[in-house]
Amino acid sequence: MTALLTEAERLAAALGPLSLSHVHRRIMAEGGQHPRRRAGSGTEFWQYRPLAPGEARGRVDWRRSARSDDLFVREREREEPGRLLLFADGSGSMRFRSSEALAEKGEAATLLLTALAMAARQGDEHVRVAGRPDARALPDLHAALLTSVFSVPETGALRAGDTIIWASDFLDSDDLATVTALARRGVTGVMLHIADPVEADFPFSGHVRFTRAEIGDPEADIGRAEALSDTYAKAWQEHQDRLGTMAADNGWALIRHRTDADPAVTLSAIARHLMSEAG
């Protein structure tokens, strides 16, 4: 077991079992259910079928049966419960760290999501990695989070009633469109914004040269950093405001995490939000 997985286990144990069944029931009550085309315990009518031999007559729908010589049962459509899906941005910018004493942004994201998955599994929740339905066992789930190379989740399999925790620095231009598309589909979510402290604080002085974080990014010799301090602070605040607006407009939550912060505090904030969704 890797050190990161061991730390996730410690964090999950401290958090305790996380059960979201009440959240899923509320989502279904608001119209977010995802019916399966087969009989089950849902609320929507599906079909009438003949009463089976040996089946209790108390199940007979007498109104429908009165129109025939046979006895019929009214069946409801099965509803599939919502799931908790996880996604960690695997793009190049998430491999950044400003100090050897800090985790990379991607490592911080993976730690938080793995711990959340462990706590949710303890609460008997259905947990998956978005786009990786085969990752079910915890080691596989952890590996799928850690090895992602995509900046946005594959959305095809997500459905109404699902909840996704999306950990990213949200620097990709497709982020807004993806969040909006998922929200319109009835998917709820948490945007978990991961930042390195130097991104937030811009503590540079003197002559600074920035190297590229991803293929295709330009390198920049910005000269004296003090001259750009105010401009950078304004741009960073605009990024924060954009994320806040993105979350609010789509009914999602925005939770921020710096890689120099205690992950237990951030994990508790995510859990509190998910539990508060019960209203």
Rank of each mutant, 00 (worst) to 15 (best):
M1V: 13
L4P: 02
E9Y: 06
L11I: 04
L15S: 08
G16A: 12
P17I: 10
L18P: 08
L20H: 05
L20T: 14
M28F: 01
G31F: 00
G32Y: 06
Q33K: 02
P35S: 07
P35M: 13
R38L: 00
G40V: 03
S41D: 14
G42C: 02
P50H: 11
G54M: 04
G58T: 01
R64G: 15
F72E: 01
V73W: 05
L85G: 11
S91E: 04
S91R: 14
M94W: 02
R95H: 01
R97T: 01
S99E: 04
E100W: 01
A101P: 04
A103P: 03
K105W: 04
G106C: 05
E107H: 01
L111R: 02
L112D: 02
L116I: 02
A119G: 10
A119H: 10
R121S: 07
R121C: 06
Q122I: 00
D124N: 06
H126F: 09
V129R: 01
V129G: 08
G131D: 07
R136T: 15
A137F: 14
A137R: 15
P139F: 13
D140N: 12
D140M: 15
L141D: 05
A144Q: 09
L146W: 02
S148F: 00
F150Y: 10
S151E: 12
V152Q: 14
A157S: 11
G161F: 00
S168W: 06
F170P: 12
L171R: 13
S173T: 13
D174Q: 09
T178S: 09
R185Y: 00
T188W: 06
T188V: 04
D196L: 06
V198N: 01
S205A: 06
R209K: 11
T211G: 06
T211L: 07
I215F: 11
G216Y: 11
G216E: 06
P218M: 14
G223Q: 13
G223M: 14
Y232S: 05
W236Y: 12
Q240H: 12
G244E: 04
T245W: 12
A248M: 13
D249N: 13
G251Q: 15
L267N: 00
L267G: 01
H273P: 01
M275T: 15
S276W: 06
E277A: 09
A278K: 13
A278M: 12
